[in-house]
Amino acid sequence: MGILEETVDIAYPQQPHCATVLVLDVSASMAGEKILELSEGLRAFIRALNEDDLARKRVDLAIITFGKDVRVICPFSAADQVQDPVLGPETFTPMGRAIVRAMDLVEERKTEYRDLGIDYYRPWIFLITDGRPSDMHPGEPFWDEVVGRVHDGEKEKRFLFWALGVDRADMKILREIAPPTRPPLLLKQTRFYDLFVWLSKSLSRISDSSIGEQVTLENPAGPDGWGIIPTE
């Protein structure tokens, strides 16, 4: 062993982390096949993260549902700590408050990372809905607050915001909520499984990237993708 190996004290940092928040619509309109497939896709997603060594160490997953209320059913956790999420249909669609909660969670998590000296990737917020918000409408102050925070947050690189519509989702409303640079996607049929496979692959690729390495993701709206970008 050389003199430097004997004398220099090396710090061992934690793995860089990738905070990811799923914001899931569990309103009454999701009842039936949709919520069953969403649940199954979510389980497959968590299984896939657990099967990837780096993703398991680096992805911090939080899950928020919005139905009767906004609930953080899973606070930020490594994939192997996530309990089997139980999703049940509820009334109302408080999407606006759920988005705000997700953005707050991300900021809180980044503060924790910084306090601990942990490097981190840009957080992801992934909204999935088949409807339209019941707690905010265009022109209302709360709408402006929520949409403004999403657009500013994306522009200022505080997070990546993905909006995904399912079935009869109001894509016009989603287009206004989503950042202008990342229009909302409409899920083909109910391909939740494909969506979550893509999400786990994307997070795995980010997790496997070195510090300083930029990552190109598969286009979810490509020919084999699970989503389309509605033009109307």
């Binding site: 062993m1 050389g2 003199i3 220099v8 090396i10 710090a11 510090i211 300083g212």
Partner: peptide, 18 residues
């Protein structure tokens, strides 16, 4: 040579694979 040996050593390798 000593510095490069240190960088290739177990300690630094354990810290980062970059």
């Amino acid at each position: 040579g000593e510095i490069m040996s240190f960088l290739r050593g177990q300690g630094m390798t354990r810290c980062s694979d970059d």
